[in-house]
Amino acid sequence: MRILDRYIFRQLIVPVLGAVAALTAIALLSQSLSQFDLIVERGQSAWTFMRVTLLSLPQLAGLIFPIAIFVGTLIALTRLQSEHEITAVRAAGSSLMRLASPMIRIGVWFALISLVSNLFLQPLTARAMRGEMFRIRNDLISSLVKEGAFSTASSGLTIYVQRIDQNGLLRQIFIRTPEANGKDRTYVASEGKISNVDGANILIMRRGSTQQVNDSGAITNATFDETSFDVSRYFSSDDFLHYKEGDRYIHELFFPNIALDWEKGNRTKLQAEGHARLAGPLYNLTFMLLAIVAVLGGQFRRGGYGQRIAAVAGIAAVVRILGIAAETASAGSVVMNVLQYAVPIIPIVICLRLLHKRDSKRGLARSQRMSTLETLRPAA
């Protein structure tokens, strides 16, 4: 039987991995379109764009894996059934549960991979993405400086840059700083670059001049080859890096620091996220068994299994929607967390019972045929 297991494994793993690759490509495309403003509006590099897009993939694995398993298993089983390979194995005396054993193991392996991803990889990448997005939002060049447009900060600082190179070099700079008694100062420079020095954002400008109104009302003008300007004094942000539920590790979800107001007030929501991380991998096994039942859970049909597959696909969609609803409801009540496990486990139990029931009926029919042959043999 090990030969049979290896053969079924090879027939299933290829379409399942192909479905994973196809759905991952679709997810990457969707994420890249949603993050495209990082380049268009924020002036970030292509590497930053790709990094943020790739960091979001572990969070999508919980949705990609079950669907890929369902689609890949349906493709493999439909082909095996249409070529009568499953019929031959069944005629040789193999039970449905024995036939489904290597398929269920694939579902269990994907569930374990998804569990490891939920516990370790997802919070790691989510924190990295959160930090990257925080850096982008608070980047002076991306948040304040707009290429070819005058931008004014809340402090009154006005800055104009004709062009921003990919390396962050600013071309043709104009700056007006608000001063007391209307004695504003202006800077004009051919180029400059913002650097971080001891936590302060310093704009280093080259080949320019500065003008300011003095006490007598006259305008003083001075030229410079290079000068530095502390932009941090005129730019302030109340934003701070805050990790949400999806960014936290499992121990932080079940044992939050109740000394902090936010974690104390969102304790139920954090626990709901923790249970969702543990219950989510079960959908891999659920969708695998649903696909098996869709093809092998009924009588053989020469015309195909379109209606049965469509019905089971609808059931799979309902199960996943109920799982999302259970997770949402659990954010408001701790007791509802039981549903997060019940929603994927109940279809697993039902599918296993259906497969076992079909095996029992087949075994009973075989016993009746053997009994009939034994009865007729003496009469012959």
Rank of each mutant, 00 (worst) to 15 (best):
residue 345 I to K: 07
residue 191 E to M: 11
residue 4 L to I: 13
residue 192 G to A: 06
residue 251 H to C: 15
residue 259 A to L: 12
residue 375 T to H: 15
residue 304 G to H: 03
residue 345 I to V: 14
residue 117 S to C: 11
residue 375 T to D: 13
residue 192 G to K: 07
residue 151 S to P: 00
residue 285 L to R: 08
residue 341 Y to V: 09
residue 76 A to K: 09
residue 119 L to W: 01
residue 157 L to S: 03
residue 122 Q to G: 10
residue 269 K to N: 10
residue 109 W to N: 13
residue 95 S to R: 05
residue 195 S to G: 04
residue 231 V to T: 04
residue 64 I to T: 01
residue 171 R to K: 04
residue 212 Q to F: 09
residue 308 R to M: 13
residue 140 L to A: 13
residue 314 G to D: 04
residue 368 Q to A: 12
residue 89 V to Y: 15
residue 50 M to D: 12
residue 138 N to W: 00
residue 379 A to P: 14
residue 42 R to L: 05
residue 243 Y to S: 01
residue 186 T to H: 11
residue 238 D to A: 07
residue 141 I to L: 11
residue 168 G to S: 00
residue 155 S to G: 08
residue 107 G to P: 01
residue 134 F to I: 01
residue 19 A to Y: 02
residue 364 L to W: 11
residue 240 F to V: 09
residue 137 R to N: 09
residue 34 S to I: 13
residue 8 I to L: 10
residue 81 Q to E: 15
residue 316 A to V: 00
residue 223 T to K: 14
residue 338 V to Y: 13
residue 23 L to K: 02
residue 225 D to I: 08
residue 285 L to E: 07
residue 337 N to V: 07
residue 278 L to E: 03
residue 121 L to Y: 12
residue 310 A to H: 04
residue 78 T to S: 11
residue 185 R to F: 05
residue 35 Q to C: 15
residue 136 I to S: 03
residue 115 L to A: 06
residue 165 D to T: 10
residue 23 L to E: 00
residue 93 G to W: 03
residue 314 G to P: 00
residue 111 A to L: 01
residue 212 Q to E: 13
residue 16 V to M: 10
